[in-house]
Design a protein around this nucleic acid. Sequence first.
RNA 1: CGGGAUGUGGCGCAGCUUGGUUAGCGCGCAGCGUUCGGGACGCUGAGGCCCCGGGUUCGAAUCCCGGCAUCCCGACCA
Length: 573
Amino acid sequence: MSAGQSGNEVRMSQLFLRTLRDDPADAEIDSHRLLVRAGFIRKVASGIYSWLPLGSRVLRKIEQIVREEMDRAGAQETVLPIVQPLELWERSGRDGAYGPMMFRLQDRKETRFCLAPTAEEVVTTLVAGEYSSYRDLPVNLYQINWKYRDELRPRFGLLRAREFLMKDAYSFDKDLAGCQESYDAMYRAYEQVFTRCGFTFRSVKAQSGEIGGDTSQEFMAVAAVGEDAFVWCEHCDYAANTEAATKQEIPSNPAPADAPAKEKLHTPGMPGIEGVAEHLKTKPNRLLKCIAFDVDGELGLAIVPGDREVNELALGQLFPEWSVGLFTDADFAARPDLPKGYIGPDFAGATHVVADSSVRAPHPWITGANEVDHHVKGSVLGRDFTPTQWAEIAVVEPGDACPVCGQPLRIDRGIEVGHVFQLGTKYTEALGAHYTDEQGEQHPMVMGCYGIGVSRIVAAIVEEHHDENGIAWPAHLAPFDVHVIAMPGEESASEAEKLSAELCAAGLDVLYDDREGRPGVKFADADLVGVPVQVIIGSKGLARGIVERKVRATGERDEIPRDRAVATLVEGA
RNA sequence: CGGGAUGUGGCGCAGCUUGGUUAGCGCGCAGCGUUCGGGACGCUGAGGCCCCGGGUUCGAAUCCCGGCAUCCCGACCA
């Protein structure tokens, strides 16, 4: 609604809407199911949807929030083409990198194009053609436009679609410091956008993918159906994706002085943690897992408790100068002395033995005996084996201590709704976006790029705001402000029509159910569609001078005097 | 890319194993009537290249071959 203007009234008898009583057969997750059932979207092809009037209204509301925050942050709205010459992608070198993700097409002259998966190339070329002086910078351009990616596996309705609405912004600065400022401004704008969109989110450090570049943060909507797991702390700001996450180091524990000597055990045909644990009637966390890896031709062992996994990324970061890789079957074949599945932390041929601090648990370990079909029990840290290096190389588990504040970490899944990158000069150099500085010298502009999955947000919101009866939209994103439901009878109908018009004149967007039909159907549809406030007008209430109000999200009902209905509802909206 | 499954009026499904002539059910849709505060009921009716192409057969939704489409799972942890 906008102050001082009259709202919009849509009558359900006229609305292009057919709600479904059954769940669509191809929808697995709640947001997909409900958006289809409630008549917001319809599938056209895998990962491609039509947006029906209800869906279109929600999409535009989110778009508007994004637009307002981008404008406030100083970005300027543009519209860039969806059909892009492939030549641009060849120039940036991303033709190959994006490869099969792109929808490709040709014109009648056989010039090759693609459908925009993103727009770095187009926007960089645009800026390169217009701006050439340090006086021009910084500049930040954005658009809200459809994007196309031929995903390996489109799924979950709007969550991984092949056609999706994205806000993409691109900043151009003189230097890294300027880029950092532009980046920070976008980061703050994103927090505003997602806060206004009313879902739970966290920003997490991320690896940049195909786009390339240095610093990047992802914004994740917390949701069980999310495709990415991430680690976060409820007590402080710490959040990271599972690959980048780390935990607080566990301090060293003195080894038990009186521990019995280690003992070799026959464990035939048990190269797996689970099998050994079962055989010895113990838990996997009493075993040590010794993962062989290669550091530039030398053998390394990564040591973690048996119930944990090695974080390959963290391991690699310990040897920044070298290439690090976990052993493959081929590597094992080349090292017949390494008894795969029976390696112990004291294996003689290892140059590096890196242990996670969780190996400092105050009990002896069961480990491989460096001999096929044998393990060892009672192996004591410091007595029977000594790592060459300690590092947090285990994948973080829920309950591990937060590296910042020490409180237990949580792992949840998230839907990536936004991503901010500092790109550096990769595109500006490739595509010739240079500027002249005060001294007359040429430099490539320093670029940042910032995406928000607008259509994906619709799904993220439904994931968080629904119940068994349907969607419950947050007030500012709902397709309408109020849902007026007329009960049977002429008096109800004429009174509902009047109230609907009054609410509309007062600036509310009103969905008015003027259909002839049974109340039960109207109630069910109202709950399914999810407009935040329902106003029920029936002859019984009217006889007492009241109308009924139901808050969709909570189910709370109250009665409002008819003559104060408009004021009360406007105030509530 | 590998594996699994599914394609039958607008939607959800049955029928297919064991081919047989009018292809069925529920929802929705249209008409009439009774109903009318949480997805009513009765009667009547419209609507189907049974995904596509080929084959077998007197005869194919059903069997065979080949496509296409859709959905799910997986994509190195000893």
